[in-house]
Every structure is written in structure tokens, then in C-alpha cells.
Design a protein around this nucleic acid. Structure first.
Length: 425
RNA sequence: GGAGAGGUGGCCGAGUGGUCGAAGGCGCAGCACUGGAAAUGCUGUAUAGGGGCAACUCUAUCGAGGGUUCGAAUCCCUCCCUCUCCGCCA
């Protein structure tokens, strides 16, 4: 959420910055609302001050022995009553304005960082660097074909169990998924990340706090009876881990590595990535998340990205780093690096991690602050996938595929998987 | 799911209509004392939003929302949550 003072005092800045994201908006109406709201607040609070004075006066007189029914006391009470009525009217109006203001503010995405490159859409994203040598070849299979041979998961039967876009991992497939989750968590915790396994049903406040609501309700699965939603990413529960908290500055940064299944409707992606592990309603992900002092978030962004890259490097998976342009930025992010892994079978790079700095955007929505000698300030949050597990498996299958039908695994994974390769059963 | 108890500041805990943002204690910070420390003493120590260069000041907040009243942490209503016992259960 953006600072409402910004709406009041500098709406042009918001319009300009959101314009970089490709939005056109006129904030004069909202600015008026914000100013009216403050106006009413001033009137209301000075009336309340008057009312408080009268209340005290009445109390004092009665305690000093005045007859509660004496005319001077009755007079004061009437004044008090009058003020109460006026306050009620103002308060009502003020609440309405505040609600409208907040509603609007919640629907605005974050302002892009000055460092974020200008652009309309994904075509304007900028490649930053590459790592590893992509495997290329004519007869390389896509991961779903490899998986089919090795019987790693059930697709058709999963429709019976749930729906399309669900997968049931089986045998070596299930084992590899488990190995990957363990490997990723071990790698991150060895660098000081605290491991988290959060609830995957989250309430509306949590989803609002990290920015998924109110705008993207149609992207999440919902348990309507309970005001609970299936979390689309561990970013949501982890943000709310510290919602409404003030974290002492000397405890920052807090760095978490959270494993969770993630649930997304993938609305509007009909026909895309229909086979395999790339786009599912349910997938596993290890998420890195930082709560950081506002002065240190820039460096943290580089670090969290490097920590995500370290997973790909350890798994010997070639990738490239793409910086998203302003037009392709996610809702809560002010600057994002995507990691795209090379899929030899598909012959393409595919997003496998997204490392974002959200500044105080989520912290303001979630009321997460820090305190030091200088006062209380909103903290900054960062998140990055480390990594999406299903897509990692896809990359491993395509990268390690052998002509004999087996799949060679990187050596770091051997102790976790218990074998150096996947073999036909 | 049934029965009961309860939700107050970082924590414990007092407060059942009047000057209460809230006693007391713990914790924390500063100062004093000390060679240094402990102990002790003094002072300070919530959040949000207004106004002010600032000192400071106003308003709101005692689970949430409504109500009664000149005045509510305290009384009334609704909701939420927590705990204990029983039931159920991995």
C-alpha cells in the first residue's frame, strides 16, 4: 500500500510513477477525498477535545457537591449532548472517506524503483547475466515425455482425483521432489535462513497484507465458509508471521526459508503449458523471505537473488537473470530479478524464481515496523523463490536425460535422492 | 460439537461509571553510586493519526463492532479469539 500522505501532498508523483507501469490515472478526486478526510479529522478531534473538557467539568462539579440536577450542570450536559451529536455526524462522514481512500490505496500497485528499467511488457525486460552452458541437441525430450517413460507422475488419474492441472507424483518422481525440497532447505538454512513450514490456509487479512487481495481474488482458491484461502505462495503466511509487530532493529534482518505447497487458479492460462510440471494448480516451492531494516534493503536484494541462484548453481542448471521492466513488475514489487532456467527439451528459458524487493509496500499493509533511537519506521520486505520445485524437477529431467532413457542427477543431489540417476523401472 | 473461564501496555497484573493511556511489579534504556560490576536510588519507557521549526500539544485506542451516559477499561448487545474439562481425532 502506498502512503496516504503521498496522495494528499504529492499525487502527481504517484500518477507519474504508476504511469511508468503503464497505468493512466487521475488522482485529483482521491486527493480531494484525502484532504477532506483530514479536514474532518481536525474538526472532529477539536470537537472531541471540547466534549472531554465538558465531561471533566461535570464530573468535578458533582464531586465538589453540586446537585446533578442544578441548572449549571444540566446546561453543561446539554452542551455535551450537542457536541456528541455533531461528532457523530462528522465521524460518520470521515469513516466513509477513510474507507474509500483505503479501498483505492489497496488497489494500487507498488511504485517502481528508480533503478527499475522502463518498459511496456515482458519484451522490454533486460537480461543481466547468464550462468552455465545450456545443453542443446536435436533429440532432446521435454520433461513430461521423460517423466512418462520413467513413470514419475500420473496426469490422467490426477484428473480423477482432482481436476486438470493437478499432478500425482509417483515412485522416483515423488522421491525426487522430496529430495529437492530437503536439499533446498538444507542449502538455505546452512546460510542462516530460518526454516518455516507455515499454514497453507490463510485468512483474508494475510492475503491483503502481502498484496494478493483485493485485486487478485480470482487467482486464489477459497474456502468461503471459513474466510480462509489456499495460499498461492509462502510469501503470504511468512509476511503475516510478523503482521502488526514492531521488530527491534538489532534483530533485523530476519531471513526465512519456507517450504509450502502453493495453490493458484491460473485463470486465463487455458491451453498454455498443459503438459507436465510447469503450470499446475498445486505445486511445491521453497520461498526465501527477508524482513530488513529500510536502510539495508538494496544490498539484501542482491543477496536474496544470489541465494536463489546458488540453488541452480549447486544443481548445475544453466540459467539467465532477467530484470523485469516497469510494465512487467508484479503488484507488490518495486524491482524484480527473474531467474530463468534452461530447459534443453523445450529449448527455452523458463522462469523458476522471482526475486523482488517490495520496499515498505507490504510492511505498510501488514503494519510491520522496526524501532531504534531514531524512532519507529516501516521495515522493508523481500522475497525470492528458492526455488519452484516442480520446475526444478523439469529442468533436471531435461538437462540430465541420457540416450538410454535414464536421467543423470547432479552430484549434490545424490545423497538426497539415494542414487545418481533416475532409471526406467 | 457440549460445558465453564477469560481477553488490559514488551511481559505479569490491578482497576466495575468520573480528571485512567491506565496502579504495582518485571523487563529495557539513561543517569547517580562503584576501581569495575552487582545491589540500590532517580528518571524515562505503547501505537496510530492531526497541529507545531521545536519544546510540545490534540484526538483515538484496555479483543472487534455497536449501544447507554455530560463522561465507559468499567454497564448493555452482537461478534471474534484464547484457555480448561468432556466428546472426537492424525
Amino acid at each position: 500500500m502506498l502512503d496516504q500522505r503521498l496522495v494528499r501532498d504529492n499525487p502527481d508523483l504517484i500518477a507519474n510513477e504508476l504511469g511508468r507501469r503503464g497505468m493512466t490515472l487521475d488522482l485529483t478526486g482521491l486527493q480531494l477525498i484525502a484532504q477532506q478526510q483530514r479536514n474532518l479529522e481536525e474538526q472532529r478531534s477539536s470537537l472531541q477535545a471540547e466534549g472531554n473538557r465538558i465531561g471533566k467539568e461535570v464530573g468535578q462539579r458533582i464531586q465538589q457537591g453540586s446537585d446533578p440536577k442544578a441548572s449549571d450542570v444540566t446546561e453543561l450536559r446539554q452542551q455535551g449532548n450537542l457536541i456528541k451529536q455533531k461528532v457523530a455526524v462528522l465521524e460518520d462522514e470521515e469513516k466513509q472517506l477513510s474507507a474509500r481512500l483505503r479501498e483505492q490505496l489497496l488497489s494500487f500497485p507498488n511504485l517502481p524503483s528508480p533503478d527499475c528499467p522502463e518498459g511496456r511488457d515482458e519484451n522490454d525486460n533486460q537480461e543481466r547475466h547468464r550462468w552455465g552452458k545450456p545443453r542443446e541437441g536435436k533429440d532432446l525430450l521435454e520433461h513430461w515425455a521423460i517423466a512418462e517413460r520413467l513413470k514419475l507422475f500420473e496426469t490422467e488419474r490426477s484428473v480423477r482425483i482432482a481436476q486438470s492441472r493437478f499432478v500425482t507424483l509417483m515412485g522416483q518422481g515423488a522421491r525426487l521432489e522430496r529430495a529437492l525440497i530437503n536439499f533446498m532447505l538444507d542449502l538455505h538454512t546452512s546460510k542462516g535462513y530460518r526454516e518455516v513450514m507455515p499454514p497453507v490456509l490463510v485468512n483474508t487479512a494475510s492475503l491483503t497484507g502481502s498484496g494478493q487481495l483485493p485485486k487478485f481474488a480470482e487467482e486464489s482458491f477459497r474456502c468461503a465458509e471459513d474466510d480462509l484461502w489456499l495460499t498461492p505462495t509462502a510469501e503470504v503466511p511468512v509476511t503475516s508471521l510478523h503482521r502488526d509487530e514492531i521488530i527491534p532493529a538489532d534483530q533485523l534482518p530476519l531471513r526465512y526459508a519456507a517450504y509450502s505447497p502453493c495453490f493458484r487458479r491460473e485463470a486465463g492460462s487455458y491451453g498454455r503449458d498443459t503438459r507436465g510440471l510447469i503450470r499446475l494448480h498445486q505445486f511445491n516451492k521453497v520461498e526465501l523471505y527477508w524482513f530488513v531494516h529500510p536502510d539495508h534493503s538494496q544490498a539484501a536484494h542482491a543477496q536474496i537473488t544470489a541465494d536463489a541462484e546458488a540453488v541452480l548453481q549447486a544443481l548445475e542448471l544453466p540459467y539467465r537473470v532477467i530484470e523485469l521492466c516497469t510494465g512487467d513488475l508484479g503488484f507488490s514489487s518495486s524491482r524484480t530479478f527473474d531467474l530463468e532456467v534452461w530447459l534443453p527439451g523445450a529449448g527455452a528459458f523458463r522462469e523458476i524464481s522471482s526475486c523482488s524487493i517490495c520496499g515498505d509496500f507490504q510492511a505498510r499493509r501488514s503494519a510491520i515496523r522496526t524501532k531504534d533511537e531514531k524512532g519507529t519506521r516501516l521495515i522493508h520486505t523481500l522475497n525470492g523463490s528458492g526455488l519452484a520445485v516442480g520446475r526444478t524437477m523439469a529442468a533436471l529431467l531435461e538437462t540430465g536425460q541420457q540416450s538410454d532413457g535414464s536421467v543423470l542427477l547432479p552430484k549434490t543431489l545424490v545423497p538426497y535422492f539415494g542414487n545418481d540417476r533416475l532409471e526406467p523401472e
